[in-house]
Design a protein around this nucleic acid. Sequence first.
DNA 1: TCCTTATGTATAC
DNA 2: TATACCTAAGGAG
Length: 268
Amino acid sequence: MAVSSPQGRFVDGAALLDGLVFETAEAYGKHLLHRYDGGLVLHVHLGLYGKVSDGVMPVPAPVGQVRMRMASDVHWLDLRGPTACEVFDEVQVAALKARLGADPLRDDAGDPGDAVRSSSRPIFALLMDQSIIAGCGLIYANELLFRAGLAPTTRGRDVPPELWGSMWTDLRALMREGVDKGRIDTVHTAHTPEVMLRAPRVDRHGGEVYVYRRTGQPCHVCGTAIARSELAARNLYWCPSCQRPPGRAGRTPGKPRRPAGRPARISR
DNA sequence: TCCTTATGTATAC
DNA sequence: TATACCTAAGGAG
């Protein structure tokens, strides 16, 4: 495998890997690990902007900021804008895994229910905490809470055990489906708006969703405008009518719970 | 052409 | 809690 860094920011790492034989790839949460003969491991995390592009040889001239370029006899791959692109040994890999929680996509993932339901933090923050659940990003967190009919600000300890059990099962199935299909679709067939049935539309994020980035648009289920606020500098989207605190499902919309005009900012 | 935004994380305060 | 990181796409003008 030929490895280089056209951009120049991974020159030393690329030199370590250049010429080695690629053996296996593993995903752990949002982290990608490539193992090479001799024991070196490439660690990549795409972060907010990272992207991978690839194709068949010959490799074209680099376009933009290519952090890492890999090429075999038949394929090439470019990596741009990752949060992490570095060479690990197995000790560093072990340290990485030690700080990550349960990965819903892994068969050996244990149910993180105890950690979730012993916490006073908002369930949304817990879903996003990589040390509790590794790999559930913003889209799945927002969509999972809608599908559960649960208010994002609900404290972890207030989530009923049976509800958490169904959420964990749902999350694992949703993420598995996302891997298989290569896109994130979370809308139940029964709720698929007619406009989608007539002309399926794929949003920039890559799928059809209930609440993610649908601020102000009508809820697919009840028609209420989707709301948006911030939590720990991340975007939170939810339906104020469909998503309720535990035990209050189906309650008709009442008066706003905060004074009008005050920003819906939630601290953790 | 310029400005804003984004599926994320680490670090400093 | 705020900011830095870092790249490209989309929208405003």
